[in-house]
Design a protein around this nucleic acid. Structure first.
Lengths: 102, 102
DNA sequence: ACAATACTAAGCGAATTCGCTTAATATTCG
DNA sequence: CGAATATTAAGCGAATTCGCTTAGTATTGT
């Protein structure tokens, strides 16, 4: 089966923070977000100077971290932002603030 | 000068997310936080199994990311949480949420 | 002054990351 | 079917990370 390998991360936060630690990957998220929440792999790759195969890898990291979901559509692949995952991290960070309300 | 080398990071987010990507470093932050916001290097190192020299390095990473500040007090060194830095990141993540209010 | 305490610094090896390149796969169009 | 399009897979080398260990420095107590 063509199911993508998705080794279960013991610590979800680890994957998410590591994914967010790279400028290109944050740029991917911001770009998809301002594009309405979803873009094809090709559109995403087009915003970068570096080889698009490199972007493919970044997309897989983001997907493995649960920050993107992806769906095949014909010969294109559509990536979508997973807001809830980002909110999970934001809420973790909120614990350190006095103004924690959630 | 004994001033600690603090190379200016072009991208502050990079340093912060990378710092948060390691479970031990998150544990350091949580531990200091629940201890009232500050602890000595020795107290922090004591919560880990691994060599305390390893923790020293983690502390420097957290400091370089601006998540901790540090101050010498006699022969001890006191580390303090820098809440504003964590809030910076939380706010960045908030941009992706519909319920952004800040 | 000397020993003890509390650290930081520096260097090593295994593992991981990030760009690259070459190759493979899947879908659509003529 | 065969070419074109869209994308993933796999493997390479340089750089970084993370644990370790050994060594060095600064402050305190006697």
């Amino acid at each position: 089966m063509a199911q993508r390998e998705q080794r279960p991360r013991v610590d979800a936060y680890e994957a998410v923070f590591a994914a967010l630690a790279h400028a290109s990957r944050r740029k991917v998220l911001v770009t998809i977000f301002f594009n309405g929440g979803s873009m094809t792999a090709g559109e995403i790759a087009a915003i970068f100077e570096h080889a698009w195969q490199t972007t493919t890898r970044h997309l897989r990291v983001l997907e493995a971290a649960g920050l993107l979901t992806q769906e095949r559509r014909g010969r294109e692949r559509i990536y979508r932002i997973e807001r809830r995952r980002l909110e999970l991290v934001r809420d973790w960070l909120s614990h350190f603030s006095k103004t924690t309300k959630h």
